[in-house]
Design a protein around this nucleic acid. Sequence first.
DNA 1: GAGGATGATTTAAA
DNA 2: TTTAAATCATCCTC
Length: 441
Amino acid sequence: MDDQPRLMHSTHGVGMAGHPGLAQHMQDGTGGADGEGRKQDIGDILQQIMTITDQSLDEAQARKHALNCHRMKPALFNVLCEIKEKTVLSIRGAQEEEPPDAQLMRLDNMLLAEGVSGPEKGGGSAAAAAAAAAAGGGGSDNSVEHSDYRAKLSQIRQIYHTELEKYEQACNEFTTHVMNLLREQSRTRPISPKEIERMVGIIHRKFSSIQMQLKQSTCEAVMILRSRFLDARRKRRNFNKQATEILNEYFYSHLSNPYPSEEAKEELGKKCSITVSQWSKDTKQLSNNLEVSNWFGNKRIRYKKNIGKFQEEANMYAAKTAATATNVSTHGSQANSPSTPNSAGSAGSFNMNSGDLFMSVQSLNGDSYQGAQVGANIQSQVDTLRHVISQTGGYSESLAASQIYSPQGINANGGWQDAPTPSSVTSPTEGPGSVHSDTSN
DNA sequence: GAGGATGATTTAAA
DNA sequence: TTTAAATCATCCTC
């Protein structure tokens, strides 16, 4: 029995310790009568194994059968299995430990958030609502786009789940097939259960990498869909004439400080019916005044750039404002400011800067409006406003120099007089909505 | 189709 | 955060 360890060492460098199969086989008397005979047996078997690939198929089959029937086969097979397990698997096992895939987690989270994976209601519809809100479009347009977005998202979701199911099915089928194959082969090759397990793990990893590609593609599809809906914001629509009129009236009646407050913007938006709830990426809230802000931003910059071009327009709205002011005066104080969101004493109307009214009247007196009709009431208002202005310092004397509009509103630096302090602007007068707009133009 | 008008977006500054 | 300024993209008129 002393020979056995030496023999195993000499062939594979692994001792007999821990190989009960062969040891038992050797000990129970079935292994042969003496040590020399056993050594010969094992040597023969190993020799046959080494040369088996050089033989023809028939020869190999015969040899294989002979080997399978050999009395030493089970013991030797066990030894080979253990050797393989100890050497190859231990090395691989240490190498193949993988941390959880962060990229996969990100993709999973995103798909969940977009409502592609997970329950259909919830994230998906919320994302759809956000995207549709961001896509803009008023009223029915909005809902149409919303449902369109949801339909497309649902399509993506369906494709994703179908493909996922296919991959899972294929993975299971392939795993079963390989397991069966390995089990079959384990009768003739040293394949341990651990190795089968490892192979299954490899297959799963391969399929999971395919799944990751699927998830990546799905995420890209969702991103493209969303960007397409977000791009729809660029599809601008012209505001209708009435809306433009209202905005222009406000602009020209606040020319010295054309910065509507949030309340004024909101009211302007409502009156013009141009406001669409916008999803703010920054605040993660719905904001209502984007169109109005855009309009005033554009108007300010374009007016400033080309005052001459807007002169006529300015005069026209000045005349309107003056006419309104006349109405206000002749109809008494009851017409006074039904809507002054920023004024200290009242709520729910647009502001008119005292300087604006004053400026309007000044310019009317001096220019387009054939002035005397303005009347004593207006003049008294002007006086009052002069007083208020001088008190608040909100209107510089230079503005009183009567030229028409903008040069008065824009200071030497190219900025507006008393520029961005819109919220503090207060003054009572009629809101643009109450001015009779010429909707036919 | 060209060119101007105009609403929307982006970027930088305060 | 708001605004100015530049720019883009689309609409509208001729």
